[in-house]
Design a protein around this nucleic acid. Structure first.
Length: 652
RNA sequence: GCUGAUGUAGCUCAGCUGGUAGAGCAACGCAUUCGUAAUGCGUAGGUCGGGGGUUCGAAUCCCUUCAUCAGCACCA
C-alpha cells in the first residue's frame, strides 16, 4: 500500500530507465540510489532535471536520472571534491595554509592558496601522494549548516584571512554550509560526491600565480591545477591528449616548418615571416583582397603612424594609451605607432563629401598595427606586438545596417568554408552596464545598437550566445568564436556596430532631403590578423593546411641523380601553371626524401624515374594517403591546379 | 606587468653532490645511383642566454639582467 506521505519517482533515462520507485517523502538521494539496480554506479541524481548530491532529500514526486561519474555533471562534482581533497592535503602537509577558492573547471579543478613557500614539482608530487591517501581512506563527505559565528571563529583561529573575506562577502541571512571530510572541512556551497573514495583518478598538473579575486591590484596567490577522471584510463587518455596537443603547438610547428621565427635582436613579440610562412600569408592576403574587392570593398593604404590627437579624438587614447608604444614628439606633432586602423579609415571617409546614394562605403585595408602587449601576454604568433589585420569599416545609413551585417556574415561563412573551418559559434558581446569605466556612457546608444545587432542575428536564424562585458568601448560586437585544436576558445572574426566614432569624427552624408545626417560604422575583421590566423591554421590542421594554402604544393623527387634534370623540368611546368613546386635534388634515397616531404606536410609528391621520363608521366603521392600511382604529368598538374582554384582538396 | 619554472650545438636533449662539455637529428664532405616514410663512413659545429660574485677551479653555488614557458591580469 502506498502511504500518503510516500512519493513516486520515475527513472526517465540512462541505466534503469522506466524504473518506478515509491519511497517515503524526504528520502535522500543516497537512499534512492541504494534502492535502484545500478544506483551504486551513480555519483548523484538529476531530480526533475536538477543535479542533487547524495545528501539531498527528495520531497515530492519527480522524474529522476543517474548522474554518472563520466558525464560532465558527474565529473564536475568529482573535480570539486578533488579540489577539497587537495586543500585537505595541503593543510596536512603545510599546516598554515590560507585557502582561497577551489572550483571545478572545464578540464579539471584548481585551488588558490596562500602559502609561505613556492611549490616545486617535487612538492606537487608529494601533495598528490597525500591526496591519493585521502582518497584511499574513503572518508564520507558531509554537508553541514554552520552559524556565522562558528565559521568565523574557526577561520580566525586558523588565521585564514582569505576565507574570512569570502564569508564577509556573503550577505547576512544566507545559509552558510561547510563540507566535512575527516578532520578537514571547507566553506562551500557544494555539491560533492558522497565520499573521497568516489573520486576516480587524480593528477596534479602545474602551479601558477593568480590574483586574489581576479584583481590585479590584489595579492597573488599560488594556484594549483589538477584534474580528475572517473577511471585511470580516462585520466591517462587525457594526459596523452595533452602530450599530443603539444605537438600541434603553432610555435613548435612554425619552427619545424620554417614558417616564422622570433629574434631577440629584433625584439619581443615581433615576428619574422620566413619564406614558407610568407607564402602562406601572401596567399591569404591575395585571396581576401580579391574577395573583398569583388564584394564592393575598396582597399586603401594608410600609414602605420598617426597623431596622438587622432586617438584622443577617437577616444582610444583614454582607453588604451597604456597599450600603445610611447609617443614620438617630432617637429610640431606627437606621433604613435597606430594600434588600430579605425581613425585612419574615418579620414578616408571624410576625404570626400558623401551622398546617401554613395552609401554604403566599404573601406578595407590589410592594416599593419603595433600594440604594446604586456610581456607576459606574448605568445608565439597568437599575441604579438606587430600585426596585420584584415580590417574594414563600412559606412552606411541606418536602414542599411542589417543588410550590411548580413553580407559580412555571409562573407565570413564563405571564407571559413574555403579555409576548411567548419566548427564555429556566434557570440553577441554586450557591455557590462555596471562597468562604467570601460564603456562609453550613453545608455540609449547601447540599448539601440545591442538590440539592432541581436535582431540581425535572429533574422538570419543564426544560433548565438550572449556575453556581457565583452563589447568594445564604443559598441556591441558579433564575435565568431572558434575552438582551437588546443581546446582554447578564441575570437577569429568580429562584426562591431559603432554609433560613437561617427559622432566623434563628425561624419556626415547628405540625405535625399538635403539634410546632413550621421552614418553608422560597422567595424569588421574576417580573417583576423595574419598572425593569429596563421597560428590558428597551423594548430587546426597540425601543419597540414589545405593544398591551396600550403606553402609548397608539390615536391618533385627524382629516383636518383640521373633524373635531376627531368625533375627540374616538371617543376618548371608546375610553376608555369601557378602550382608551387620544388625538386629535392639531394643525394639521398627515395624513401628518405619521401619521408622528409611527408614531415614537411607537403600535399603532393611526384616521383620521377625512368618509367615516368619515358612516358611524360609522374608517380603521384598524396599527403596522408600514400602512393596513388603513375599518371600523365599534364593530368596530375591540371588536377592539382583545379584543387587550388576551387580551394577544395579532392580524393584521388 | 605579476607569480612560478626553464635557458647547454640549427633542433630535441644528457651532463649526480663544483674538476674544464656529450648524443641523436639537421648541416657539410666522400662513397653509393638507389622505385614510394630514415644507405654507410667521415668532418665541422658550443666563451653552457648576458653580466657580476664565491672558489685553486663554475654549465654546476650566489646575485643581477635578458629571453622563453605555464597561468593570472590585459586583449580596441
Amino acid at each position: 500500500m502506498t502511504n500518503s506521505t510516500d512519493i513516486r519517482l520515475i527513472v526517465t533515462s540512462g541505466l534503469d530507465a522506466h524504473t518506478e520507485l515509491v519511497v517515503p517523502q524526504g528520502e535522500t538521494v543516497g537512499g534512492v540510489l541504494g534502492r535502484l539496480p545500478h544506483g551504486v554506479q551513480a555519483v548523484a541524481l538529476r531530480v526533475d532535471g536538477v543535479v542533487r548530491e547524495v545528501g539531498c532529500t527528495i520531497d515530492g514526486n519527480a522524474d529522476i536520472a543517474y548522474v554518472m561519474p563520466d558525464e560532465p555533471d558527474g565529473l564536475a562534482l568529482m573535480r570539486h571534491s578533488a579540489a577539497h581533497v587537495l586543500a585537505q592535503a595541503l593543510v596536512r602537509i603545510y599546516g598554515d595554509v590560507q585557502l582561497g577558492i577551489g572550483p571545478a573547471i572545464e578540464e579539471g579543478f584548481y585551488y588558490d592558496v596562500l602559502l609561505a613557500e613556492p611549490l616545486s614539482s617535487d612538492a606537487l608530487a608529494s601533495i598528490e601522494e597525500e591526496m591519493q591517501r585521502i582518497i584511499a581512506e574513503d572518508v564520507p563527505i558531509r554537508r553541514r549548516v554552520v552559524s556565522r559565528e562558528e565559521i568565523v571563529a574557526h577561520y580566525e583561529a586558523r588565521g585564514d584571512a582569505l576565507k574570512l573575506e569570502l564569508i564577509a562577502g556573503i550577505p547576512e541571512g544566507v545559509e552558510l554550509t561547510v563540507y566535512e571530510q575527516g578532520e578537514f572541512f571547507d566553506l562551500c556551497r557544494g555539491q560533492h560526491v558522497a565520499c573521497t573514495g568516489r573520486i576516480g583518478a587524480i593528477k596534479l598538473l602545474h602551479t601558477a600565480g593568480a590574483y586574489w579575486r581576479g584583481d590585479s591590484k590584489r595579492p597573488m596567490l599560488q594556484r594549483i591545477y589538477g584534474t580528475a577522471f572517473a577511471t585511470p584510463q580516462a585520466l591517462a587518455d587525457h594526459v596523452a591528449w595533452l602530450e599530443e596537443a603539444k605537438q600541434r603547438d603553432h610555435r613548435k610547428l612554425g619552427r619545424e616548418l620554417k614558417w616564422f621565427t622570433f629574434a631577440g635582436e629584433v625584439g619581443q613579440g615581433l615576428p619574422i615571416w620566413l619564406p614558407r610562412g610568407a607564402t602562406v600569408r601572401r596567399t591569404m592576403e591575395r585571396y581576401i583582397v580579391d574577395k573583398e574587392q569583388s564584394l564592393g570593398y575598396e582597399h586603401v593604404y594608410t600609414p602605420v603612424l598617426g597623431s596622438v590627437a587622432l586617438y584622443q579624438q577617437s577616444g582610444h587614447w583614454d582607453h588604451y594609451a597604456d597599450n600603445m608604444f610611447p609617443k614620438m614628439d617630432m617637429d610640431n606633432e606627437s606621433l604613435v605607432l597606430r594600434p588600430m586602423n579605425c581613425p585612419h579609415h574615418m579620414m578616408v571617409y571624410k576625404s570626400d563629401l558623401r551622398s546617401y546614394r554613395d552609401l554604403p562605403v566599404r573601406i578595407a585595408e590589410l592594416g599593419t598595427m603595433h600594440r604594446y602587449e604586456y610581456s607576459g601576454a606574448l605568445t608565439g604568433l597568437h599575441r604579438v606586438r606587430a600585426m596585420t589585420l584584415n580590417d574594414a569599416h563600412i559606412f552606411c545609413r541606418p536602414d542599411q545596417i542589417k543588410d550590411e551585417c548580413a553580407r559580412v556574415i555571409s562573407l565570413i561563412q564563405e571564407v571559413y568554408a574555403d579555409f576548411g573551418i567548419d566548427a564555429y559559434r556566434f557570440r553577441l558581446s554586450y557591455r557590462d552596464p555596471a562597468n562604467t569605466e570601460k564603456y562609453y556612457p550613453d545608455d540609449a546608444m547601447w540599448d539601440t545598437s545591442q538590440a539592432m545587432l541581436r535582431e540581425v542575428v535572429e533574422q538570419l536564424g543564426l544560433e548565438y550566445e550572449e556575453a556581457i562585458g565583452e563589447a568594445a568601448f564604443y559598441g556591441p560586437k558579433l564575435d565568431v568564436q572558434i575552438m582551437t585544436a588546443l581546446r582554447k576558445e578564441e575570437t577569429l572574426s568580429t562584426v562591431q556596430l559603432d554609433f560613437l566614432l561617427p559622432q566623434k569624427f563628425d561624419l556626415t552624408y547628405v540625405d535625399a532631403d538635403g539634410v546632413k545626417r550621421r552614418p553608422v560604422v560597422i567595424h569588421r575583421g574576417v580573417i583576423s590578423t595574419m598572425e593569429r590566423m596563421t597560428a590558428f591554421l597551423l594548430e587546426h590542421f597540425a601543419g597540414a593546411l589545405p593544398t591551396w594554402l600550403s606553402p609548397v604544393h608539390v615536391r618533385v623527387i627524382p629516383v636518383s641523380d640521373a633524373f635531376i634534370d627531368d625533375a627540374q623540368r616538371v617543376v618548371d611546368v608546375c610553376t608555369a601553371q601557378h602550382v608551387r613546386a620544388e625538386a629535392d635534388v639531394r643525394n639521398e634515397k627515395l624513401g628518405y626524401k619521401i619521408r622528409h616531404a611527408q614531415q614537411e606536410r607537403i600535399p603532393y609528391q611526384f616521383v620521377i624515374g625512368a618509367r615516368e621520363r619515358d612516358n611524360a608521366a609522374v608517380s603521384v603521392r598524396k599527403r596522408g594517403q600514400g602512393e596513388i600511382g603513375s599518371m600523365p604529368m599534364a593530368d596530375a598538374i591540371a588536377r592539382i591546379a583545379d584543387e587550388i582554384a576551387r580551394k577544395r582538396d579532392g580524393s584521388w
